[in-house]
Amino acid sequence: MFEKLKSEALVLITDKNLAVEERLQQVCDLLKENVTHYDWVGFYFKNGDKNELKLGPYAGAETDHTIIPFGKGICGQVALSNQNFVVPDVSAQDNYIACSITVKAEIVIPLFVNGENIGQIDIDSNTPDPFSEEDERFLEFINNEIAKIL
């Protein structure tokens, strides 16, 4: 499934007829629609020179979490650690910001441009422990390709 999605995502990411923001939105929509355990897919980006993340394009339920301070929640921790963060059970995390009571698991993959962590892709799942190493590698691929257009 991920191999097919990689090629579909590449077509969207490299479509020079669309603004970058629109391409990111289409990637969010593609992933949410095609991966059954991706219930919310979005990008957060460093907010200028502030130590916080700002919500970018996303697909899924609306969220109040449009600004996330570095260090807070899973996304805020990834902003500081520069490491992938896979959470099989969000209820077991002390430093977790609940977006919805239906969310059971989360995966956050940092997005690097020229070695700098400038944002991340964040995926919430209503399925307990759904993420595998295959998800991690796939999302790293997506971020690497997106980094080329930012």
Rank of each mutant, 00 (worst) to 15 (best):
M1Q: 13
F2V: 11
K6E: 14
E8D: 09
A9E: 14
A9D: 02
L12H: 04
I13E: 04
D15V: 01
D15E: 05
D15M: 06
N17L: 06
N17A: 13
A19E: 14
V20M: 13
E21R: 09
E22S: 15
R23Q: 01
R23Y: 02
L24V: 12
L24N: 04
L24C: 09
L30M: 13
L31E: 11
E33W: 10
V35Q: 09
T36L: 13
H37P: 09
D39A: 13
W40T: 02
W40P: 12
W40A: 12
Y44R: 04
Y44D: 08
F45P: 03
F45W: 10
K46Q: 10
K46V: 15
D49Y: 08
K50I: 06
K50V: 04
E52R: 03
K54G: 04
L55S: 11
L55T: 03
P57N: 13
A59W: 12
A61Y: 09
E62K: 13
D64P: 10
D64Q: 14
H65E: 05
H65Y: 09
H65T: 03
T66C: 01
P69W: 00
F70D: 01
F70C: 00
G71M: 01
K72Q: 08
K72T: 14
G73Q: 06
G73K: 09
I74R: 03
C75V: 08
G76T: 02
G76H: 11
Q77R: 12
A79I: 00
A79P: 00
A79V: 00
L80N: 00
N82M: 00
Q83Y: 03
F85R: 07
V86I: 14
V86Y: 08
V86N: 11
V87I: 08
D89W: 10
D89Q: 05
V90G: 04
S91K: 10
A92T: 14
A92M: 08
A92V: 07
N95E: 09
N95W: 08
I97W: 02
A98F: 10
S100N: 13
S100L: 07
I101C: 04
T102L: 12
T102V: 05
T102Y: 14
T102M: 12
V103L: 05
V103T: 15
K104Y: 02
A105W: 04
E106W: 06
E106S: 03
E106N: 05
I107Q: 09
I107V: 15
I107W: 02
I109F: 00
I109A: 05
P110I: 00
L111D: 08
V113P: 01
V113G: 02
G115V: 01
E116W: 00
E116Q: 05
N117Q: 01
I118V: 15
Q120T: 06
I121V: 14
D124A: 10
S125F: 05
N126E: 11
N126F: 12
N126S: 09
T127R: 10
T127D: 15
P128G: 03
P128I: 03
D129N: 15
D129P: 11
F131G: 00
F131D: 12
S132K: 13
S132C: 03
E136D: 04
E136P: 01
E136W: 03
F138E: 07
F138Y: 06
F138V: 07
E140P: 00
F141Q: 01
I142N: 01
N144T: 10
N144L: 10
E145K: 12
E145C: 08
A147M: 04
A147I: 03
A147R: 05
K148P: 06
L150F: 14
L150W: 09
L150D: 01
